[in-house]
């Protein structure tokens, strides 16, 4: 993958996903056991922010539809948070997935370049 423009910023949003959490926990362990320097870990996390964002954008094609009851909404610092209940997801391969409640955390796709 090509390196991004140096001034491009990436959200830390995906760190809270399973793969991001797994990396964070592994790095925490490595820091606590002095296997890795904290600043190296910070660098690795920023690589993760960029790689995860780019890979999602470039390699994922799937579409998803979601319906449900919007229980709570909030927009704070350009981040939308929704709590949706009685959710039905429809994946584009026809799979339907139900959830009692889901939280959506979404950052602006047009990130202001500051």
């Amino acid at each position: 993958m090509s390196a991004p423009a140096n001034n491009q910023l990436y959200y830390e949003l995906y760190r809270r996903s399973s793969i991001g959490t797994a990396l964070t926990e592994a790095l925490d362990q490595f820091i606590s056991e002095s296997y890795i320097e904290p600043q190296s870990a910070v660098r690795i996390m920023s690589h993760f922010d960029r790689v995860m964002t780019d890979q999602l954008r470039e390699t994922v094609k799937a579409r998803m539809q979601l319906k449900g009851h919007l229980r709570t909404y909030r927009c704070c610092d350009d981040v939308w948070t929704f709590i949706v209940t009685d959710v039905v997801f429809k994946m584009d391969d026809g799979d339907m997935v139900n959830a009692d409640k889901i939280k959506i955390v979404a950052c602006n796709s047009r990130r202001p370049q500051e």
Partner: peptide, 28 residues
């Protein structure tokens, strides 16, 4: 409400899914 999401990671029921584009419709 209608919302158009993109480049998402979903965890439902312990499983991960990803989507390029997601559309949501909800009534508050």
């Amino acid at each position: 409400w209608k919302y158009v999401l993109k480049d998402g990671i979903v965890n439902i029921g312990g499983k991960d899914y990803v989507f390029s584009r997601g559309t949501g419709e909800s009534e508050w």
